[in-house]
Amino acid sequence: MRADLRLKKQKRLRIPGGKGAATAALAMGCVMLAVFLLAACAPSAFAPYSPTQTFDPWLPSSSEHVFGTDDTGADVFTSLVYATGRTLLTGVASAALALALGVLAGLAAGYGGVVGAVANAVIDIFAMIPKLPATIVVAAFAGGGIAQTVTVIAVFGWVTTARAVRAKVAHLNGRPFVDALTAAGYPKAGIAFKHILPNTLEVILTRFVTTVAGCIMTEATLSFLGLGDISSPTWGTMINLAYRRGGFAMDAYGWLLAPGAAIMLLALAFWCVWYFAEHRSRDVSGRSYAD
């Protein structure tokens, strides 16, 4: 009997890998995130030089300069470490805003009536808008400040969360406890925020992790196209500078590739955490709202 149950649970998993793999992924993701977070909080502990220190320009990578130096002679690894904080901050801030928008829209969509219909329509329409092109155009209009960038990324980045929350809310609305609360005469808004919202927490947390990675990727693309703030560079801005200032011609591969690799590692770290969360949520509730 017990074996049967376990078999059934495993069959429901939509992602490969067992519990051990999930735990290993979580550990790996957390270690990577911890390193990035430490680098963001205390860059001077990681960077070999001060951010204003300069050397000969265009030095190739060596034991003194892991990724070489850039056109102004700054150590690329040092710039990379000092850009960590800004990159993480933009990503987390826009993800938080996108998440708030998405959760609100998703809750409203399950609300029924005019509010529900409007929220559903808005979600479906936003899902049809070409995300990256629209983000690029609106970001160009809005200018390159951090507040503007965060807002624009969030405005076009909340739809997937809204759809996941909407699916979960639809699922919860069919549960007896919602019927009981409605029959007992509790106000609809109260039910939505006090009783349904806490039950969507698992979806929200899972979505947050993927949204942060997605927002960092979008920000990097915007900065790569030159929409970033040069006074407080992110990794995307670094790639833009490396590309525009002749990184290819000068064989400055460290400068060109290292920021991209850092973004990739960060995205992977978030993916590892997502993988664990997804595993857990499927173990517990047996279904996923990710798609």
Binding site: P16, G260, M264, W271
Partner: peptide, 23 residues
């Protein structure tokens, strides 16, 4: 599902999905 091919392909898809287009 969860066989060798699935695990290998899904893991590489996750890895490739993390690579930014410009990189």
């Amino acid at each position: 599902p969860r066989g060798i091919a699935d695990t290998a392909m899904t893991a590489s898809a996750a890895l490739l999905g993390a690579v930014p287009t410009f990189l």
